[in-house]
Amino acid sequence: MTTDPFSADYPALISIRNLSHNYGKLQALKTLDYDIFTGQFNALLGANGAGKSTLFNLLAGLLRPQQGQFDYLNQPMTSPGADYLANLGIVFQQSTLDPDLTVGQNLHYHASLHGFSRKQARSRIEEELERLNLQDRIKDTVRSLNGGHKRRVEIARALLHQPGFLMLDEATVGLDLSTRKQLTQYLHQRCKQEGLTVLWTTHLIEEIEASDPVMVLHKGTARFSGISHQVIQDAGVADLTDLIEQLTASHAPETITGSETANNSGKTNQSI
């Protein structure tokens, strides 16, 4: 039994191969290779403009790959199909809840998009809200909730249809430290206990645990990937903040010495 995601026999839920995307002349992603590991809290780090949202939109099916592809369970996803989308939960960076409707109405709407009956939806909504301590907010309008509660509702909604893969795009922006910690702890717990695969895009590094697989995206390319503490060690930096700061500094290539990416077979490649 292996618990190291970067060992050869660890399963990848999503394998991104040679993926590129341009907006006109602006190249957002450049021949990206990246594995999203099953049952792990996969952290996608990068400063603003690194290409995180583009990758996120590609994986959500809101953009189509212009070059390269991603595989879901070894099946190429040129156009994400219903089976993929039925197993995908998404929390977008901006709130996508209807502010004038109640928490319950918003969640029922989402359940209907996934073909749930009222009864099934009711039981799932109660279950998810209870887990996030929101059960007595079901009749409140979303407008009346604070930022942290709204985020929790969004997470409950994204997990309502019991997806195996949950993507969150900068889900903790604007939240206070304790709420951020609670949310990441909660999702780490669900990864460990239920095998949920999480893709967590962020620029806030304190949300990542030392054993999480991390990929550092910079200017559309994977600059580092590996287990969080290993990446820090390989890059010869104090922590991930330091790494991001050095990458975004204009003299980045000179300051970083041991930059490496690890691929799925456990070998390492020089990336800079």
């Binding site: 039994m1 292996t2 618990t3 995601p5 660890y10 399963p11 839920l13 590991f37 099953t38 049952g39 792990q40 369970l73 089976d83 039925a86 197993n87 019991q162 997806p163 195996g164 893969f165 990864c191 460990k192 239920e194 095998g195 949920l196 695969t197």
Partner: peptide
């Protein structure tokens, strides 16, 4: 354990 987890395919 993560290695025993099969992707939840619906």
């Amino acid at each position: 354990p993560p290695s025993e987890v099969s992707p939840l395919i619906r």
